[in-house]
Write a protein that binds this DNA or RNA. Structure first.
Length: 850
RNA sequence: GCCCGAGUGGCGGAAUGGUAGACGCAGGGGAUUCAAAAUCCUCCGCCGCAAGGUUUGCGAGUUCGAGUCUCGCCUCGGGCACCA
């Protein structure tokens, strides 16, 4: 054996795996199956450290399961539709399709050298017509199943470019290219009825015991089930047909603190009132800015008094003014509220601004003093009601709400209802590079699904991006078609689907990626569910919730078996890899981002290579749009894939964010070189060498097997690696017989193989291991070797560590106490004080209380 | 604004409510070398010569015992439905 040279061994072992077909997934009824999946990448063109971290984690799991005797499915694909391809076409010319497939080829070429145990025969890209054609078929099935509909919804509208903008393209309320003030505009759009499953998606979260608690909580809050009161205000002075104003409130117990009613600018009443130019002007003002929740909720609260009044349901002589307010969302509840400034901070701010009354309904102590801010205690907390009308004087908010609902139902002015915050999923995108919605608009038949035999509806290639807007809209012939129902001339839908649709079912497609139906039930039956799904925490809500919905929709339409209703048995959310962001501004004041490799960083700041000063924004999630990505190819070129893999797994716990730094790669390489040298040294030992260390080596081996196996299975890769460092050091210092040393280093190789598979193969082969290390069975620790005969017990006096004793592991408690109290140091510290209590935690600690 | 996390040496981090700082990096000292790199040995939270004291963002609390549990703050990060 010579020097450790990964550039020689890595390609060599990758070839060996390929020849052996080691990673081809096969349906084998004799074996248990294991499906491990990492969230597939967007083909930006370069892999970054986040990818390396993500795919190495999945690979460690996949390789361990393979060794443990499972039939493993570990596929890879490309989430290939989306805006960056169109942006590239606009910025640099070229075609989104060429750009995307070029990027896929580049990224695959960068991933291959990592030595991942991927079954590449199952590769797919969502922009393959083979894939999105099946998605169109499912869209049609979902239409027939009543899971798809059209309605008006607001979008960001750029009035200069005359185009719809994504939230990301709205910066400080302005269009990113035109710089024009963005408006909210209504458009008829396609929706999936995810709200049909609100209750089901919420209650099924309880069964996802192998998901992080955090993700389940985030999803539960997102779905947002609430119990409240819906009732109608009688209006005074409202236009005809609007005699009642329906409102929903989760705090009906605060009804006596009402000081106004407020409606959304998009509320039907507001629309009627828009006939008045002053109202129209105000509503137009409300529509300024983008559609994101952040923008709407942080915008200055503005209101307009309509002059209309409503009668308070508990007192017909009490009238409240009706305002139009920009912070009321039409999407939630009924789009109308009653404002109770005393117990809602937004209402408080609004009432303060417009001099509306602020009357507390309850207080902490029963006093009735003026408030300087809204009093919003936990609903579970007991408070004193001073303007209550139902239930007890002193009760919790929850009790107050329940009593108020009961009161309303008994007196017939309202009823308790359950509402969800979850809105239906708008999937229409007015863009080219996405899956065409397979629907036809016919003058006589209306909206008609395309005939399945015409699928896939492929994107036309001959499009241009020289003007803003959707190229499909202005394509001369693509839109023209015949109605599948009546045969008349008709027009194709030009909206494409949200890319979240593409990623909501790819896990199922991987079980039969070449099928001419979306899935094949026998394959789905065998491979589903995904046993371990791994991806970024940034997908905790949308992608994972949409996927859970899609699995249900696919089951309803016959594309998945019942067992796959929750598609991901276990979820691991890895932390993000973060990096600084480098920004400059172009001549129109718009931000331009720069790759770290194009920036020269110094203590004082940063510049481009031509000397232009660059603004440094603190470390944040690596993202293509911010260009704060790092190229791992440099590390692979210098140190090899095993070093890169070892390094990304070793330092940070996998669920935590890691800030990318260059230090550590060198150290990882040094350690792998040490293992290589150790193997060479053992290889040169004479066959008949005898040492005294065999028993200690056997114990260390058992402990390493135990520690590494537990580390990998518990997703604590950093701890598994700490154990491997320790084991390598132990072997290096051990004086065992040649046979024992060889056995130990073969075990080390096997235990390292999920992280550093190439080095492991080389060591395995050199030490006489049978066959490929990759397919050799995972070692088992002999339990008898894992227990020590004596234990060291620390002795605390009043909780402070003062001494320690060594005793046989199964010594009775009474005897341990006796030895502890007789200990010299303990006697000294006690100084004759009487012992009040002595606590012995067997095998752990002794605490003496005086 | 709303929802969710995280905070432990110079750094990355370890610790079923039971010896805080495993393992690694950086650093100090030494061996080897003509010299250096590499390698090996050794020390390494802070204060202190030592004995000892002190230490897990800040402040309270529960407990024989709290990094871990509870409450209140501070700081940083993620998500907010058209970024993927």
């Amino acid at each position: 054996m010579s020097r450790y040279d990964p550039s020689v061994i890595e390609p060599q072992w990758q070839d060996a795996w390929e020849k052996a077909g080691a990673f081809t997934a096969r349906r084998d009824p004799a074996k248990p199956k294991y499906y491990v999946l990492e969230m597939f990448p967007y083909p930006s063109g370069r892999i970054h450290m986040g990818h390396v971290r993500n795919y190495t984690m999945g690979d460690v799991v996949a390789r361990t399961k393979l060794a443990q005797g499972y039939s493993v499915l570990h596929p890879m694909g490309w989430d290939a539709f989306g805006m960056p391809a169109e942006n590239a076409a606009m910025e640099r010319g070229g075609h989104p399709k060429d750009w995307t497939y070029g990027n896929i080829a580049d990224m695959k070429a960068q991933m291959k050298p990592l030595g991942l145990s991927i079954d590449w025969s199952r590769e797919l890209a969502t922009c393959d017509a083979e894939y999105y054609g099946q998605q169109q078929a499912m869209f049609i099935d979902m239409m027939e199943a009543g899971l798809v509909y059209r309605k008006a919804a607001v979008v960001n509208w750029d009035p200069v470019d005359m185009t719809v903008l994504a939230n990301e393209q709205v910066i400080d309320g302005k269009g990113w290219r035109s710089g024009a003030a963005v408006e909210r505009r209504e458009l008829t759009q396609w929706f999936f009825k995810i709200s049909d499953y609100s209750e089901e998606l919420l209650s099924a979260l309880d069964g996802l015991t192998n998901w992080p608690e955090k993700v389940r909580l985030m999803q539960a809050n997102w779905i947002g089930k609430s119990r409240g009161l819906q009732f109608g205000f009688q209006t005074v002075g409202a236009p005809e047909g609007l005699e009642t104003l329906e409102v929903y409130t989760t705090r009906p117990d605060t009804m006596m603190g009402a000081s106004f009613a407020a409606i959304s600018p998009d509320h039907p009443l507001a629309k009627v009132l828009e006939a008045d130019p002053k109202v129209a002007e105000f509503v137009a003002l409300c529509r300024k800015g983008g559609t994101s929740a952040e923008e709407i909720e942080t915008a200055e609260k503005i209101g307009y008094d309509t002059g209309i009044r409503v009668k308070h349901p508990l007192d017909p002589n009490w009238e409240l003014p009706v305002w139009i307010a920009n912070f009321i969302l039409m999407d939630y509840g009924t789009g109308a509220i009653f404002g109770c400034p005393a117990h809602d901070q937004r209402d408080f701010d609004f009432a303060t601004k417009y001099a509306l009354p602020i009357k507390p309904v309850f207080t902490a102590d029963g006093s009735d003093a003026a408030l300087t801010e809204a009093f919003v205690p936990m609903k579970s907390e007991k408070v004193h009601y001073i303007r209550g009308f139902a239930g007890d004087k002193v009760q919790s908010g929850d009790e107050g709400v329940a009593a108020a609902i009961a009161h309303a139902e008994a007196n017939g002015y309202g009823k308790g209802v359950t509402k969800f915050r979850l809105r239906d999923w708008g999937v229409s995108r007015q863009r080219y590079w996405g899956c065409p919605i397979p629907v036809i608009h016919c003058a006589s038949c209306g909206v008609v699904p395309e005939d399945k035999k015409n699928l896939p509806i492929e994107l036309p290639y001959d499009v241009t991006f020289d003007v803003p807007g959707n190229p499909l809209d202005r394509h001369p012939t693509w839109r023209d078609c015949t109605c599948p129902k009546c045969g008349a001339k008709a027009r194709r839908e030009t909206d494409t689907m949200d890319t979240f649709v593409d990623s909501s079912w790819y896990y199922a497609r991987f079980t039969a990626p070449r099928a001419t139906t979306p899935t094949v039930l026998e394959d789905a039956e065998y491979w589903m569910n995904v046993d371990q799904y791994i991806g970024g925490i940034e997908h905790a809500i949308l992608h994972l919730l949409y996927s859970r919905f899609f699995a249900r929709a696919m089951q309803k339409t016959g594309h998945l078996p019942a067992k796959a209703i929750e598609p991901f048995n276990a979820l691991f959310t890895q932390g993000m890899v973060t990096h600084e962001i480098y920004k400059t501004t172009d001549d129109k004041g718009r931000p331009v981002y720069h790759l770290p490799e194009d920036v020269i960083r110094s203590e004082s700041g940063a510049t481009l290579k031509d000397g232009t000063a660059v603004e440094v924004i603190p470390s944040a999630k690596m993202s293509k749009s911010k260009k704060n990505v790092v190229d791992p190819m440099n590390i692979i070129a210098s140190y090899g894939a095993d070093t890169a893999r070892w390094f990304v797994m070793s330092d940070s716990p996998p669920e935590r964010d890691v800030e990318w730094t260059a230090s550590g790669a060198e150290a990882a390489f040094k350690h792998l070189s040490r293992v290589w040298a150790l193997s060479a040294r053992i290889g040169e030992m004479p066959a008949d060498h005898n040492g005294e260390g065999d028993e200690a080596l056997a114990k260390a081996t058992a402990r390493a097997i135990d520690e590494v196996t537990k580390g990998i299975e518990g997703f604590a890769f950093n701890k598994a690696i700490a154990g491997l460092y320790g084991f390598a050091n132990t072997i290096s210092r051990a004086n065992g017989s040649t046979g024992a040393m060889r056995h130990a280093i073969r075990t080390l190789a096997k235990l390292m193989s999920p992280m550093t598979p190439h080095l492991a193969e080389a060591v395995w082969a050199a030490q006489g291991g049978e066959g490929l290390c990759t397919t050799a069975p995972w070692p088992k620790a002999d339990p008898a070797l894992l227990v020590d005969d004596t234990v060291t017990l620390p002795i605390q006096i009043n909780g402070k560590r003062r001494a320690e004793i060594s005793v046989p592991k199964d010594m009775p408690t009474a005897e341990v106490e006796k030895i502890a109290l007789a200990d010299e140091a303990v006697v000294k510290f006690l100084a004759g004080q009487p012992v009040k209590k002595i606590i012995v935690v067997p095998g752990r600690i002794i605490n003496v209380v005086v």
